[in-house]
């Protein structure tokens, strides 16, 4: 199993290939389009994170001792970033999730999307992922 750090390094490497913002954004948009992120049954109001402008849904499940996340958004760029976050955080131990950070988002030139003042729900989503990790960690003990 790859660690969160390894996955993040891999993503940084992928993004290093892009020459300008257009290529980076096109890649994110494509990621956003491709991924079937969440099952409809979990796309409920309970699972919604209100970001004012774009909505984010998150669902978590414990498989053995790892958490599997699925998520979605109504805006495609937000969805692209979700795809990247899910790739790093999903199928990891709660402890690893709690210890991980998201500074790699700065390195791939997407910093502005994780600004706390950006109304896209992503900051709250990361908080939510960590909350799930705390909850499942307690459950595992």
């Amino acid at each position: 199993m790859q660690s969160i750090q390894e996955i993040q390094a891999e993503i940084i490497e992928e993004f290093a290939m892009f020459e300008d913002w257009e290529e980076r954004y096109q890649y994110m948009i494509d990621l956003g389009k491709d991924l079937p992120l969440i099952e409809t049954q979990f796309k409920t109001d309970d699972n919604i994170i209100k970001g004012c402008q774009s909505k984010v849904w998150v669902h978590a499940e414990l498989n053995d001792d790892k958490i599997a996340f699925t998520a979605d958004s109504d805006a495609i760029i937000t969805k692209g970033i979700i795809a990247i976050l899910i790739r790093t955080f999903s199928n990891q131990h709660p402890k690893a999730i709690l210890e991980a950070n998201t500074v790699f988002i700065d390195d791939i030139g997407l910093k502005e999307h994780l600004s706390p003042t950006r109304a896209n729900g992503l900051v709250s989503m990361i908080k939510q992922l960590k909350m799930y990790a705390i909850a499942y960690q307690t459950q595992l003990k």
């Binding site: 913002w21 805006a75 495609i76 760029i77 109304a119």
Partner: peptide, 21 residues
Amino acid sequence: GIHPYDVGTLLDKMGIAVRTG
């Protein structure tokens, strides 16, 4: 079929300030 937030985000990358939401 396109969310206004996505359009606003890309326009900002091109130096164009609009409001979305």
